[in-house]
Nucleic acid binder design. Structure first.
Lengths: 347, 347
DNA sequence: GTGAAAGCGCTAACAT
DNA sequence: ATGTTAGCGCTTTCAC
């Protein structure tokens, strides 16, 4: 056995020249073989491969990047590394991107423009091939990147913009609401109330429109008096549900535009002695991890976070390869997750 | 206004030579200025700085990396990008590391050795200066990295090893349990039950020892008949609590070794008509996000995830700079989060 | 089909 | 104090 120094497989970096020497060819030829370039005889190909294997040769990406000015590296900046939605999106991005041999830099801006700029600065210096800007909050508008990116392609994830010509990936809130309301209507519910988030979110408006659309299509009357707008979280759901259920003609279904709202509503219903789903069907939005642990387990409209991440990654990779980058808004379809809070499972 | 091409601030990359030319000096001098090296007159320093600013010069990190064989880049591989503990640790790492000008590659191995190896391969090719291996699961043993890293420093986060000489960062389970049990004893509880996780976790054993230690110190008897080991999640807590409360001499406090267990126990207590905290004090472990939303809000021992991430980042950076890297196990102290489930707040 | 040479943008001796 | 030179490891014309 040969003397084994620190790293097991051939320690100190073996270069293309070492391989060339061992194979008895020029570095240029080795390069061609390593990159599967044409115009190399099958024979030398074999020889070189053998030599490379024997030396455990791995091309130095840095040198290659310097020469080719491509790094196979992406920047991913999130404004909320702690958020509940961020992770799934990141996972989608990482998944599709690493499968293509790309690596991604993880950066946290805390939603602060100065930090975003600082990160962008080093990403540019490190010559990333593209950048994804994620928001962890409910999809909203934002401006251009905190630093002009030149011709580095960008895509926005879970946010959109009017200011810059970038691709944006968001959930299809309208379609998601259609799914949810359609489910309720299909189960025979006729007085469907909506407990929504703050009015200034686009999602709020789109989801309400989705409900109206689905109801109209199902021939179920839409009663504007049964719509509440509040906050995205529990207490708001509790209050709105309490209020709605004490109406002279209370609803027979509650469409809550977040799972947190739905949990709050569930609490109110419970305190009021209203049975779910017998008396009132309850449906949430987001498919948060706690939805399945409610009693009854919460039927909900799932945000397609992982798919959104995948799409964002795919779009960016495509832009990188093809040099494109039009402004476009991609709405990814939501999915209905049927559990027990609406009664019978889907027809 | 000058014709403005694609990128606003000086498009196509301006190099050190451009700056040198404009400043009327050599590239070497520019390099010295940019790196604050000595032996440059204050005068030229000014001139060069001005030229660099004017051209909006940013040194090419790739070129610099090639020359210096340092990339100011770290690899971060997690086995669970979806997990509840992962994010906070990643945030800690990102925070301390990016403050030092380092970037971190995000990689997801899904706990699969082949994927870990694949990621390690590209990280090595991309010449990262160090690697952090995170586990998203409850701290456990693991083997060496899936690929020998040569002399690239590594640190394990939320996991440890006997096989490799790496630094490991884990929570101080023993200390955390001492904190929790001490709190209970300090509140006058005398019959303290423990609902633990699976016996084969080290954490399980350490936490139990912590309880015993704290109880002994407080002069409270430890009753082994009041200890249950099960799973980390709710149903297990429900079952154990139901069982414990129907004992001839039921406990007056439940130390649950996860918040999920505690939530299950809370459900059981509720169903049994036992009041919390009046009849039984309840304390959890982890400080999960839902702990604060329980009724009553759950007192719990917080896992120091962000601090652990910070420490891991600091250790790695230190190893990179100083070339060290001893095998060592770092236990980061947990923190007691007092809410309402144990009665009076801390004495 | 293969190799020699140039050079990506930077830094680090070594001269001057 | 400043400039000249060489070269990090790779790819890519362009000869042969």
């Amino acid at each position: 056995m040969p003397p084994k120094d620190k790293a097991s497989p051939s320690s100190a970096s073996v270069t293309i020249r070492d391989v060339a020497r061992l194979a008895g060819v020029s570095p240029a030829t080795v390069s061609k073989v390593m990159n599967n370039a044409p115009y190399v005889s099958e024979e030398t190909r074999q020889t070189v491969r053998a030599a490379a294997d024997k030396l455990n040769f791995r091309p130095n990406s840095i040198a290659r990047s310097l020469k080719m000015s491509r790094t196979a590296t992406l920047g991913l900046i999130t404004d909320d590394l702690e958020g509940v939605f961020t992770m799934s999106m990141m996972r989608g991005v990482e998944e599709v991107v690493s499968a293509q041999g790309f690596s991604v830099f993880l950066c946290n801006s805390y939603g602060d423009a100065a930090r975003e700029r600082a990160h962008l600065e080093v990403l540019i210096d490190k010559k990333v091939d593209g950048v994804i800007l994620i928001s962890g909050y409910r999809v909203r508008q934002r401006g251009a990147p905190a630093l002009p990116l030149g011709d580095i392609p960008v895509v926005y994830l879970y946010q959109y913009t009017d200011e810059a010509a970038v691709r944006c990936v968001v959930p299809d809130d309208f379609g998601g609401a259609v799914l949810g309301a359609g489910h309720l209507a299909g189960l025979g519910r006729r007085r469907i109330a909506v407990i929504n988030g703050p009015a200034h979110y686009e999602a709020t408006r789109h989801r309400l429109e989705g409900v109206q659309h689905a109801l109209a299509r199902a021939g179920v009357p839409f009663d504007a008096a049964l719509v509440r707008a509040g906050k995205w979280y529990e207490s708001s759901g509790y209050a709105a549900a309490s209020d709605l259920m004490t109406l002279p003609a209370p609803p027979d279904a509650l469409f809550c535009m977040s799972d947190s709202i739905a949990v709050g509503a569930l609490g109110a219903l419970h305190d009021l002695g209203v049975r779910v789903p017998q008396d009132v069907a309850l449906i949430g939005f987001d498919n948060r991890s706690f939805a399945v642990h409610q009693r009854p387990p919460l039927t909900t409209v799932a945000l397609p976070l992982v798919q959104m991440g995948r799409l964002a990654g795919d779009l960016l990779l495509k832009d990188i390869r093809e040099g494109g980058s039009a402004a476009e808004l991609y709405r990814v379809p939501c999915e209905l997750v049927v559990r027990q809070s609406c009664g019978a499972s889907r027809a």
